[in-house]
Nucleic acid binder design. Structure first.
Ligand SMILES: [Mn+2]
Ligand SMILES: [Mn+2]
Ligand SMILES: [Mn+2]
Ligand SMILES: [Mn+2]
Lengths: 219, 219
DNA sequence: ACAAAAATTTAGATTTGTCTAAAAATAGAT
DNA sequence: ATCTATTTTTAGACAAATCTAAATTTTTGT
C-alpha cells in the first residue's frame, strides 16, 4: 500500500510514542506532530480505515502488525539517510535530522536497498539508534541511562534520546558525542546533576535532564 | 521563496518546454504534466501572482528572470541526484529519472551543495544533459542531431533528447549509450532511417525518429 | 457519587491541487 | 469576413490536510 507524507509522519509518530506506553493518546500525537488534536482525530480515522492502526474513539491508538512494518520501513529510510549525510557528505550529526525528515518519504525501495549496500549495511545511525534491516528487523539495544550509571566506572555514549537541536547544541558545547568515553565522578542529590570525567580530559557537569537522555554502555 | 512540489514541477515543465519556443501553451503544459488544461490555468495564475512567470490569459507563458533561477535550481538537483544514483548506487541510466523526479524536491541547499562536492562537481548527468552550478550557470552545449551528422565521420553520443523508458529500452537493445562512438554509413531517403557502424563492432539500423533524439559531437 | 477539569471528537471552514462541464476567446478555412 | 474548430478560461465540485469553536466523553478530586 502507498501512503502520503502526512500519513507516514503520523505512523512514525505513533511508533515512537508507543515505546513503553500501552496506547498512544490523541494529545501526545498532537504535541509530537505540532498539529491540533482535532486534526489528529481526522487522521486516526483515516489510518484505521486503512488498517494501519487499532483505534477506538476516546480509547487511544496502537499500530497494527501491518502498521509496525510500515513504521519500521520509514525509520529504516530515515536512519540510513542520516548515516549517509554524516558519513559521506560530512554533515554534523546535529544537522541531519531535518533533512532526513524529508528524505525518508522518497518512495523507491530499490533506492533504499542500494543505499544500504553503498553504506556497508550500517547497524546504527549517527545518534546511536539501530537501523532496521530490509525485512524490518531491528536490534533492540538494552539502553542504560547515564543518570543510572555506576560511579567511577568507564562507559561509552551509545545513543541520545532526542534529536532536538537544543540537545545536540548542548552536547557539542560540553564536548560529548557518540562514542565519547567517560565516567561518573559524583552525583549531587540536591538537583540530580552529575560530574563527569571525559576520558583523559576535563571534568564537566551535566544536569539531571541531560543525563536522562544520554545512553551508555559499560566498557 | 519556497515552493510546493506541484509548483516546482510546473516551473520545471515551463523551462523545458520553453526551449526554442517563444511562449509555452496551456495545452503543452497539460500534456507534459498529465493534468487537465483547467488545472494548468489555475496554477499559472498562482505562479503569476508569485512573479515566477509572465502570463497573460490566452497569450501563453514564459518564465521570469526569477523563475529561470528557480527552474535551474530544480534541474541542478534532478541531475545531480541522477548522477549520484548511477555513479554511486549503480543504477542503470534508464532507471534514475523517476527517482530523481522525487529527490529534486528535497529542499536543503546545503545538501545539494555537499552532494555536488561529494560527486566531484560533475558537469553532465547520465543522459548527457549539463548540470547547472550552484549559481545557476549551465553549459549550453551545441547539440548536433545524429540525423544531421556527416557520413563516414566518427562521432560520439553525448546526449539523448528524452528520458522515456521506451527510448532508453530501445537504446539498450541497440547497444547504444552515452559515449558510444560510431559513424553513419548510409541514410535511406525513403524513411529517413540510418545505418550506423558502432566503433569496432556491428552495424545497426536506427529509425529517423530515434536519430532525431540522439545528439552527437564529432571526434 | 458528582462536579469540575481535561481530553477527545464533531461540525463547519480553509487551502492546495485537482477534476468536469460550460462559456469565451483565438486561430484557421473558405 | 464569417463561420468553425481549437484552445483556453471560468464556474462549480471534490479530496487531502489542516484549523477553530463547540459538543461530548472520560478522568479526577473531594
Ligand atoms: Mn518526515
Ligand atoms: Mn537519528
Ligand atoms: Mn518532480
Ligand atoms: Mn537526466
Amino acid at each position: 500500500m502507498k501512503f502520503t507524507m502526512a500519513e507516514e509522519n503520523y505512523i512514525k509518530a505513533v511508533y515512537h510514542l508507543q515505546h513503553g506506553q500501552e496506547v498512544v493518546s490523541t494529545n501526545a500525537l498532537s504535541a509530537e506532530l505540532q498539529t491540533k488534536p482535532a486534526s489528529v482525530t481526522d487522521m486516526l480515522k483515516k489510518l484505521k480505515a486503512k488498517k494501519i492502526i487499532n483505534y477506538e474513539p476516546y480509547r487511544g491508538v496502537k499500530l497494527s502488525a501491518e502498521g509496525k512494518k510500515v513504521a519500521l520501513g520509514i525509520i529504516r529510510k530515515h536512519r540510513l539517510w542520516e548515516y549517509f549525510l554524516v558519513d559521506k557528505l560530512q554533515f554534523g550529526w546535529d544537522e541531519v535530522h531535518e533533512v532526513a525528515e524529508e528524505l525518508e518519504h522518497i518512495s523507491s525501495n530499490k533506492l533504499i536497498d542500494k543505499l544500504d549496500e553503498f553504506l556497508g549495511h550500517p547497524k546504527f545511525d549517527p545518534h546511536g539508534d539501530p537501523i532496521p534491516d530490509s525485512k524490518g528487523k531491528i536490534i533492540a539495544q538494552p539502553q542504560e541511562q547515564l543518570s543510572r550509571a555506576l560511579l567511577h566506572t568507564p562507559v561509552e555514549i551509545t545513543a541520545v534520546g532526542s534529536q532536538s537541536t537544543e540537545l545536540l547544541e548542548l552536547l557539542k558545547h560540553k564536548g560529548l558525542q557518540m562514542g565519547t568515553r567517560l565516567e561518573v565522578k559524583k552525583v549531587f542529590d540536591f538537583d540530580g546533576s552529575l560530574e563527569l570525567r571525559i576520558k583523559n580530559q576535563q571534568v564537566v557537569t551535566v544536569s539531571r535532564e541531560l543525563a536522562s537522555v544520554l545512553f551508555v554502555k559499560s566498557l
